[in-house]
């Protein structure tokens, strides 16, 4: 028996909206500790990793680990039927479920929707991602980072991110010309302006903006985003989902041939 009830169902809707351009189908692994999901884009350049802790749910029960293979497109269709204020409950009684039940309830419990989504059997192509001590970590407004990526992607397809003790520089070079945006440490008490740099080792890495713009669809999940980098490592972009878990994106760098 597996049942997970999320009080703020809108979070689940936002998560699916944030990943639906990147991955087509995912395996959600349910265990006693919560839900986890890892999936790569078709080119194996980017990866999304979701972890939702059981104590972030209103109700959570998972008698034994199960894997739920979902088509993101079909999941989206079902979640469109959930109101932003609804609670969302996922449920199945089977051990090897062939479908997953969804219940959407409005606040007054006066409207209850029930859907059953057919499950897919997907071979898991999961990667072992070691816990990394990143040498450059940038915490900043997710809206601001999203804006920087959008603005720079009109000049070039790739952005070079260079960190130093007191600032991070986003540089682009394209046919029309070049440009850079430098953001300094800023302990402002306004979320949108605050920038926290923890630079043990400066890095200079280049990434495809197309993927960063896809990751930034998660901006509605958290007002802050963290960029985690080490030389010759994929970038890890993390959106923490308050007291529920986190949505992480990994992106392989571009390097000179």
């Amino acid at each position: 028996m597996f049942e997970a009830k999320l009080q703020q169902g809108v979070i689940f809707k936002k998560i699916v909206d944030a990943i639906k351009d990147l991955v087509k189908s995912v395996n959600i692994d349910a265990s006693t500790s919560g839900l986890s999901m890892q999936a790569m884009d078709s080119a194996h350049v980017a990866l999304v990793s979701l972890k939702l802790n059981e104590n972030g749910f209103k109700d959570y029960r998972c008698d034994r680990p199960i894997t739920l293979g979902l088509s993101i497109e079909n999941l989206s269709k079902i979640l469109k039927c959930a109101g932003n204020d609804d609670t969302i409950t996922l449920q199945t009684d089977e051990e090897e479920p062939s479908s997953l039940k969804f219940f959407f309830e409005n606040q007054q419990a006066s409207k209850i929707s029930e859907f059953s989504l057919n499950l897919m059997s997907l071979d898991s192509e999961s990667l072992g991602i070691p816990d990394t001590d990143y040498s450059s970590v940038i915490q900043m407004s997710s809206a601001e980072f999203s804006r920087i990526c959008k603005e720079l992607s009109s000049i070039s397809e790739t952005v070079e991110i260079e960190t130093s003790k007191e600032s991070v520089k986003f540089s682009v070079q394209g046919d029309i010309g070049a440009g850079s945006i430098t953001v300094k440490n800023n302990q402002s008490d306004k979320d949108v302006d605050r920038v926290d740099l923890q630079i043990d080792q400066p890095v200079k890495l280049t990434f495809a903006l197309r993927y960063l713009n896809m990751f930034n669809k998660a901006v509605s999940l958290s007002s802050t985003v963290s960029l985690n980098m080490s030389e010759e490592n994929p970038l890890m972009v993390e959106y923490k989902i308050d007291d529920l878990g986190s949505l992480r994106f990994y992106l392989a760098p571009k390097i000179s041939d």
Binding site: S124, P130, A252, K254, I255
Partner: peptide, 14 residues
């Protein structure tokens, strides 16, 4: 021109 790397070059399967 910079070449796009793949994640498999940094992380091992499963």
């Amino acid at each position: 021109q910079k070449g796009q790397q793949l994640l498999n070059e940094y992380y091992n399967q499963g």
